[in-house]
Design a protein around this nucleic acid. Sequence first.
DNA 1: TATTGTTATACTCTATAACTATA
DNA 2: TATAGTTATAGAGTATAACAATA
Lengths: 163, 163
Amino acid sequence: MQKHVIFAKPSGPKPSGNGRHAIINYSVLSEAVGYRLRRAQLAVFQDFGESFAAEGLRPADFSVVLLIKHNPGLKQSEVAEALGIQRANFVAIVDGLEGRDLVERRKSETDRRVQALYLTPLGEQFAENMLATWQAHEDRMIAKLGGPEARDELIRLVNRLTE
Amino acid sequence: MQKHVIFAKPSGPKPSGNGRHAIINYSVLSEAVGYRLRRAQLAVFQDFGESFAAEGLRPADFSVVLLIKHNPGLKQSEVAEALGIQRANFVAIVDGLEGRDLVERRKSETDRRVQALYLTPLGEQFAENMLATWQAHEDRMIAKLGGPEARDELIRLVNRLTE
DNA sequence: TATTGTTATACTCTATAACTATA
DNA sequence: TATAGTTATAGAGTATAACAATA
């Protein structure tokens, strides 16, 4: 299906070292927004990767399928921009999804330069299963956070960093 | 100093498109922990990269210098593990810092396999300036979040995802 | 035998330039 | 002239295997 391991990461206990851990002073790193955000994001993507290992679906693939499902007919460049992906790099992503018969490119009648994106029937079905798998993943993250209110608070806070 | 642009990203206004933006339904992506966390982390690293563009210092370099400053004499593998960096990939990072005369490797007397890490005098001085630059960056992030209390709350929440 | 640091290698993600076909 | 999609390419980050020196 997918030639490479996606999100490979330790699954068993680490055989490294002698079991003892050095006591380390992390200084400001403990409270550094960027560092803590990065580590947390990696942990979440780790769980996401394990959830979708069988499907070989990466975060970008998930986002693209979701956006096309809810916005059929969008131009490639519009989906790419919405996700912060450069259009040059977006081509391979759509190629992959089209090669799995999940997404279809249709040349616009009014502007022959643009490729409008749609889910195939298989893609629609895939999206349903994908969302169920994703919801289970998201529920784990929400549980770790301490519930839906904590999740809402987290989203509210991180959005301030992006705006 | 550094051959490659670090954290290259748009600095000016985007010349793309005609100015109009497609109205897009993001569906669950708007509230997805992984997606929002990722976008926020990229925004923070973006600011970090701009802050340290002149020094050519990447987030990993910053963390390594900081950890050695506060834990002189740690083994390479201990610093690497503390930061979640594989020891094989950590070699090039230390090579870079040693090449800039910021960090020094010293072979342990008691175990000739290990390289203990120390800041050079230049490294100590560098660390001071680095921390001042970092604090300015961090203050911008805290301001965006809405103050130190909001920052503390964010750290508390994201830590639950890593633990 | 096991561990530390190292080298080599491969894959993913991302950034940039240049091309094509259309407008 | 400008835009949408594409190709090619290069750099950065990361994962794995294997080796030498040392324990």
